[in-house]
Design a protein around this nucleic acid. Structure first.
Lengths: 135, 135
DNA sequence: TTATTAAATGATAAAAATTATCATTTAAAT
DNA sequence: ATTTAAATGATAATTTTTATCATTTAATAA
């Protein structure tokens, strides 16, 4: 259990118990959908409102405390903001892995080829994870 | 105006006037949201139902006639299925460009590093397009 | 500590997005 | 021209997300 009080405040978010729990849920789960997050949160706060989940997710996105990851053929998942990275998604078991890939050479090529100034990247690689290829 | 009758049939889709119009709208627009597609279609068929749009988009996705492109901070857009490619999205004017980028070296690295078998890629590069950097 | 205040929460309504249902129409194959 | 399975349009139902508002609470300062 990490104490996210200060980090929340750095992102201009009051450190409410609900938010601290959301932060820890994201920390322990890595990536989670709104639905699953709500399920987990209901166990911790039996009276939490779904509206609180949505409002906090949106605020946390606006304040860059978390990031949304849009996946092909699946609902978005949310993760704590970290260093920029890409994602591996297993089409068999739906597991999601973070992976740091150096995309600079690609960005350079794009800049030269198309005179488009790249500011950020979103890369999702779909396929079969290690576990599933062994089973 | 391209005649998509045969191509639709190749994808196990009856060539209805509505579907032919959807195909042509995607062809001329390149990328379009559900909402915009509906607006365009209403001009061509004043009695078309939004349900028809949704049902066709879903069928066309299932039959790989079209692809969904998930964009950061925006609604999904749909495009005719083409050779695999990536997307450039301008954060100023929201323009979307197709771009073919060779990701094989990256895929190779991932395979070796993480023993994850990559089957498909989804790459969106956000930034400033040529037009907007000049204005 | 306690008091103050702006913000967060929970309950719920409202809105938006998507899917389901079904009678009617139509594309495609006799 | 006939037949039939599928598509369409109208609309209801469901799902997802946002808005509203009374109450509670975190954060700040006295």
């Amino acid at each position: 259990m990490i104490n996210y009080t200060d980090i929340l405040r750095e992102h201009n978010l009051k450190a409410t118990p609900q938010r601290l729990a959301i932060a820890n849920t994201l920390y322990t789960n890595g990536h989670i959908t709104i639905d699953s997050l709500y399920e987990v949160m209901v166990e911790k706060f039996n009276a939490i409102s779904l509206a609180t989940i949505y409002k906090n997710i949106n605020l946390m996105l606006e304040n860059s405390f978390i990031k949304e990851v849009k996946l092909p053929n699946a609902k978005s998942v949310y993760e704590l903001t970290q260093a920029p990275h890409s994602h591996l998604v297993c089409t068999k078991c739906s597991a999601i892995e973070d992976i740091t890939i150096d995309l600079n050479s690609i960005i350079d090529t794009v800049t030269k080829t198309s005179s488009f100034k790249v500011d950020s990247t979103n890369l999702v690689l779909s396929g079969i994870c290690k576990k599933c290829s062994n089973n």
